[in-house]
Design a protein around this nucleic acid. Structure first.
Length: 901
RNA sequence: GGGCCCGUAGCUCAGAUGGUAGAGCGCCGGCUUUGCAAGCCGGAGGUCCCGGGUUCGAGUCCCGGCGGGUCCA
């Protein structure tokens, strides 16, 4: 059977279901009603459940009913996964329950945690974020997907299409109490994440309440090929089912209960009559345009027409309420994201979190409400903590802090952006593309915002549609080349995987082995203690010795489990027994740094909070780096606490255990906290456990007890990016060496200052203060003396041509200072003042012209040049410098010029 | 990892072409006012982030470093 073929379920056919084609949407569906024409789903047909509730059940009850029903049908209930998909390197957020089990379990490489299983997984999808609100609850960014999954492998068949539909049918009729003639099964095709399969979408009273996917193909070179593992991937919309049962006016009423009214009054929005809202909901469900992303205000007009209401009246009533709905949804998503450890930033999932926070802030602004968004988020936390998610409460303080920080940051950008835009508009009355780019690139002010501010100032700004492309082009970003496989990659299959001695004993520095191959100019041994590059740990170096030969090992690489040694020197012939010696100093230092990285990461988590995650790391011989996620700068006090706790942990001399575990078992035992350095793409993981302290999946070499790390010293912590802090540290010998050196420097400084080491900072500050005072005093003195002298000198003058000329010889103040004094003292007297100040073997000169029509700058330029110096200046003041012995002739030239003109 | 922007008085920031470092707020003093808010007059306060270079001369130009911001990977 191929994709798109009729999906024939015997179970349904036996009950009398027939297949039909919907004349409106053209899709096929199965129904018990021989007279039915359309598929029954909105927008082909309106909702028929609103105002006709059948059960007064809350979300929690509906969820529990589902899970326990599935349990009664031999499914194992498992707990929810985080909404941040840490175990995936191709996804940021958990967007469906099946995401929890991709890619290894669905591919059959790793057994599932249970089979079959049932789960209710909170999911976040931002694709339809614009429709959240206007569609009255059909679209949400955060929702719970209830599911039952069965993984059918070659070894074990669990169940497939028939049983899946049976399970749904029984759940819908028995548990939800829906008469079976009201259930329509629509046929469809589901594609996603490289997998595909046919699906059935049960429709009840206009609402699709589940999707039953039969995942049986995977994409290979653009074609779908059958999979070995066939996966039952169902998704039951908890929110929709609850809405259906309750018949509330909107989906938000079903999901958020009292919170709808709390938010509404908190946001100062008027209540809308329930009947009007219900009718609006029903009508909105049949408008296809909403699905196509058409503008909401156009649609509002249509709905007004159908309801025979004034469209501006409707707009006034509904539009604020839609914003309340959107805020209800967004704040819940924010609460879950932050509780699960998201740190807002400008990249990856951090950006998605920020996007929702900023959208929410914008909604608050549009509603004209001045309040802390965190208050609303906190309400969500307490609401959902009581409804099956107690973990939210534990994260409350952090959630509130992060939202507050983000709000402050947003307002700061608005403030700054407005100021800069004002400045530009003031100076040139317009804003061009260049300005937009600078504002965005250098100041982070998005063009949309610039537009708003500029409009307020009455300036029109054109934002090109391809603005962000222009930015990208400006950065000339080269796409990082995909890690290219070496040309000899297939050749490696001829050899057995290398025995990795460094895993058996990380302290083994010498070994004997046999040369089994020469590949790509490198040497392949049957076993090796040389660690290849990986996990942020650089490859080992060392030497290979054999009878009659010797070569340095300059780098080591590993492909497909085969370790290749790049040599500087002759290659030992095939079959040679070689003796390998690893550069012990470097390797030990790297092991210490590597284990120290794990210790510091865990310590940072304990000091700063569970949102701290490894962003990147690099181990070196002298110094290493650990980049962690955190939402603000680390204070010096926090850094000291991290440092001290890390050292204490090292001193506790905890055992460091390494072992291999099946992925699912490891995740179940330790959680996703394993994946700190990124996702390891293997079904079997190497686990590095600092006993009782920290567990990570890691392929590096580690010391066997934390005491071996030695001292840990963090040199600095700096924000390398929004939401990411880099810790630079040393461990072991380099840490000790640099600490010793730093201390002797401190000692020396203390000695120079004549104080104890503890008082160095105070004494230094005092000395600087004193120096400042003294400088000030000296300057004041010099100025006073010089001022008296200059006052006397200026009383006298010599008549040169038409000009009164005075000459001031400066001794104790700078030429600058002298000019200022002369300028002040000369007052309104007509005068040309020549200032000189000896400076080494040169003389600095200046000519100040007061009250004459004469360009001082030109005069000085010519006069200095003529005696082998240089200078220039403006109308009133010229300055320059000349050789000492040319002073007389310089003065002569000036006199001649003045006399001659 | 790369690009761009910024670092000037206690704070917020101006300082076109290199040529005597400025404003507003705050602070101190005086005057005005019953007092407050404010107003007027005067004053103190600067290693123009650090180091090097170019130049007769650098806050300004060039290079390097430190710190902050921001964008792209």
């Amino acid at each position: 059977m191929g994709l798109g073929d009729p999906i024939e379920i015997q179970f349904l056919i036996e009950r009398g279901y027939v297949r039909k084609k919907c004349p409106k949407c053209g899709e096929y569906f199965w129904t018990l009603d021989p007279d039915r024409e359309t598929c029954g789903e909105a927008p082909c047909e309106p909702y028929s459940f609103i105002g006709r509730g059948v059960a007064d059940k809350g979300l929690e009850e509906v969820r529990e009913d589902f899970l326990s029903f599935m349990e009664s049908k031999d499914h194992t209930r498992i707990g929810r996964y985080p909404v941040i998909a840490r175990w995936r390197d191709d996804l940021f957020l958990t967007s469906a329950s099946i995401v929890d089990f991709q890619p290894f379990i669905t591919a059959g490489l790793v057994p599932p945690p249970a089979n079959p299983l049932t789960i209710s997984q909170p999911c976040i999808r931002l694709k339809d974020v614009d429709k959240v609100g206007p569609t009255m609850g059909r679209h949400l960014t955060i929702f719970e997907m209830m599911a039952h999954h069965a993984f059918n492998t070659k070894e074990r068949f669990v169940y497939w299409k028939e049983r899946t539909v049976e399970l749904f049918h029984e759940y819908a009729t028995e548990v939800l109490g829906i008469p079976e003639e009201e259930i329509i099964y629509k046929e469809g095709i589901w594609e996603g994440g490289g997998n595909a399969g046919p699906d059935l979408e049960p429709i009840v009273r206009g609402l699709e309440i589940a999707t039953l996917v039969f995942m049986e193909y995977r994409e290979e070179n653009g074609k779908y090929v059958p999979m070995d593992t066939k996966v039952v991937d169902t998704g039951y919309g908890l929110e929709r089912i609850t809405w259906l049962l309750r018949g509330d006016p909107t989906g938000f009423h079903a999901v958020y209960g009292d919170l709808v009214d709390t938010f509404r009054s908190e946001l100062g929005v008027e209540r809308v009559e329930e009947r009007l809202l219900s009718r609006y909901s029903e009508v909105s469900s049949i408008l296809r345009e909403l699905e196509k992303g058409r503008k909401v205000d156009v649609l509002r007009g249509k709905i007004a027409e159908i309801l025979m209401l004034d469209s501006s009246y409707l707009e006034e009533k509904i539009s604020p309420l839609e914003k309340v709905f959107a805020l209800l949804d967004h704040t819940k998503a924010i609460a879950f994201m932050l509780a699960d450890g998201l740190v807002p930033s400008n990249v990856n999932e951090g950006y998605l979190g920020r996007l929702l926070i900023r959208r929410s802030l914008k909604l608050l602004k549009l509603l004209g409400v001045e309040m802390n968004l965190s208050e609303l988020v906190a309400k969500q936390v307490s609401y959902w903590s009581d409804k099956g998610f107690p973990e939210l409460k534990e994260a409350l303080d952090r959630i509130v802090e992060i939202v507050d920080i983000e709000q402050a940051r947003y307002e700061e950008i608005l403030r700054r952006g407005e100021k800069i835009v004002r400045g530009i508009v003031k100076s040139k009355r317009k804003l061009d593309l260049e300005d937009l780019i600078t504002l965005y690139d250098s100041h982070g002010v998005p063009p949309e915002l610039v537009q708003t501010v500029a409009e307020k100032l009455g300036v029109n700004v054109e934002v090109p549609d391809n603005f962000y492309e222009l930015i990208a082009g400006r950065h000339e970003s080269r796409k990082p080349e995909a890690p290219r496989l070496p040309p000899f990659i297939d050749e490696l299959d001829r050899y057995k995987p290398t025995k990795l001695l460094y895993y058996q004993d990380p302290y083994l520095m010498e070994f004997d082995a046999t040369v089994v191959g020469h590949v790509g100019g490198m040497v392949l041994l049957d076993e090796t203690a040389f660690y290849p590059e990986g996990g942020g740990q650089p490859s080992d170096v060392g030497v290979l010795l054999w009878p009659g030969g010797r070569a340095e090992v300059v780098s080591v690489e590993k492909y497909k489990g085969r370790v290749l040694h790049r040599l500087n020197g002759p290659l030992p012939p095939l079959g040679t027994r070689v003796h390998g010696k690893v550069d012990e100093g470097r390797r030990l230092s790297r092991m210490r740094h590597h284990t120290a990285t794990h210790v510091i990461l865990e310590t940072a988590r304990r000091v700063l909070g569970p949102h701290v995650w490894q962003w990147g790391a690099q181990k070196g011989d002298e110094e290493s780096r650990l980049d962690i996620t955190h939402y603000k700068s680390i204070t010096p006090e926090e850094l000291e606490r991290i440092e001290l706790l890390a050292n204490e942990t090292a001193m506790r001399n905890l055992p460091v255990n390494t072992f291999w575990l099946l992925r699912t078992d490891a995740e179940r035992r330790y959680g996703f906290i394993l994946y700190q350095g990124g996702v390891v793409p293997d079904p079997i993981l190497r686990i590095v456990e600092i006993q009782g302290y920290n567990v990570q999946a890691c392929g590096g070499t580690h010391v066997t007890r934390t005491g071996d790390i030695g001292p840990i010293k963090i040199w600095r912590a700096r924000r390398i990016q929004d939401g990411v802090i880099r810790l630079e540290f040393s461990a072991g010998v380099p840490a000790a060496r640099r600490l010793i050196k730093a201390h002797s420097m401190l000692k020396e400084i203390a000695q120079s200052l004549g104080v104890s080491e503890e008082e160095v900072d105070k004494a230094f500050k005092a000395a600087m203060e004193e120096l400042k005072d003294l400088r000030r005093e000296i300057r004041r003195h010099a100025r006073e003396i010089e001022e008296a002298k200059i006052r006397e000198t200026l009383k006298e003058f010599e008549k040169v041509g038409d000009y009164r000329v005075s000459r001031v010889e400066l001794a104790s103040v700078s030429l600058d200072e002298g000019v200022k004094l002369v300028d002040k003292l000369v007052g309104s007297d007509e005068r040309v003042v020549i200032l000189t100040k000896p400076s080494g073997d040169r003389v600095e000169v200046a000519v100040l012209v007061n009250g004459y029509d004469l360009t001082a700058g030109d005069l000085v330029r010519e006069a200095t040049r003529s005696v082998g110096g240089g200078g220039g200046g403006n109308q009133r003041l010229g300055r320059g410098s000349i050789p000492k012995e040319k002073l007389k002739s310089f003065l002569g030239v000036i006199r001649a010029r003045l006399g001659g003109s």
